[in-house]
Design a protein around this nucleic acid. Structure first.
Lengths: 142, 142
DNA sequence: GCTGAAAATGAGAATCGTTCCTAACATGAT
DNA sequence: ATCATGTTAGGAACGATTCTCATTTTCAGC
């Protein structure tokens, strides 16, 4: 079992890029968060210039370390990829755009997986993943 | 059983706005499409000024006729709301951003519904809907 | 420990989708 | 016909993101 940093280092090396301090800060901030975060949200936490932040996010996405999540008002939030964060789903507030992770218990997740398999079996489309999103209002927007 | 136009007229009346030619064109274009469409995509089809188009989309969303779908690069695509288009899900190409509708058969949809009910039962969050999105590559991006 | 090429950075300008503003234009109720 | 209100076109403004480029950092090979 390797640490997250070791795994990220390997992934970045495979893309021929370095695991610098700014990139490390981004990965650690996202690892500590309990949902996807936008560039601006990270910016207000991290003391990394915005332009560098956007570049780091792009590099990390390209290397398969982060996955983007497109929300309201053109805001893209990033989270650790599935191999790092574990497979999970999202609860999204339609009002403020906040996204929280939810992990389904194995039984339910298994059912969902079977469902997706049935759906994609009939399509001429090569699926790479699936996402179940529950929409509603979060506690602070009610 | 009323026509779509009649139903939309009622919804807009409830919001105190008119069902004008431009709005009718938007609704009909989306009814004919087999997936969500962005303002730009509609613009290239409809001969409605972009600013009016955006306003029409906002009005129709506000009235509950359309629902937005946020895609890559900050592009928002709209589709008819569930009451008009029927409940369905999406297949999304991670490369070009194209979104296509998929309708699940009743048995599968019922399973999914039960799944979502189980998930939300444990959350202090008032759900308004759910979406299952299958990600992958479309035929033209392979 | 140096050195040079490649990679990464920071600051600001530029771009893109989208929203807001304003003045001119319809429409329906009175 | 008149008035209040809804609607429009066009363009300015906006926020998120990307680009540019000069500078700095990193690291393999000496």
């Amino acid at each position: 079992m390797q640490t997250l940093d070791q795994q990220v280092t390997q992934r970045l090396a495979a893309s021929g890029v370095r695991y610098t301090a700014a990139r490390r800060a981004v990965v650690q901030a996202l690892a500590a968060a309990d949902g996807p975060r936008s560039a601006n949200e990270l910016f207000s936490t991290l003391d990394v210039p915005l332009s560098s932040l956007y570049r780091s996010l792009a590099v990390l996405e390209e290397a398969g370390v982060l996955t983007p999540h497109h929300g309201i008002r053109g805001v893209t939030r990033y989270e650790l990829a599935e191999w790092a964060a574990g497979h999970h789903h999202h609860v999204i507030c339609g009002s403020c755009g906040t996204v929280d992770d939810i992990h389904l218990d194995e039984m339910i997740e298994g059912q969902l997986e079977r469902l997706v398999a049935e759906i994609t079996a009939a399509l001429s489309f090569s699926p790479t993943g699936h996402a179940l999103e529950v929409e509603g209002r979060c506690a602070s927007c009610l």
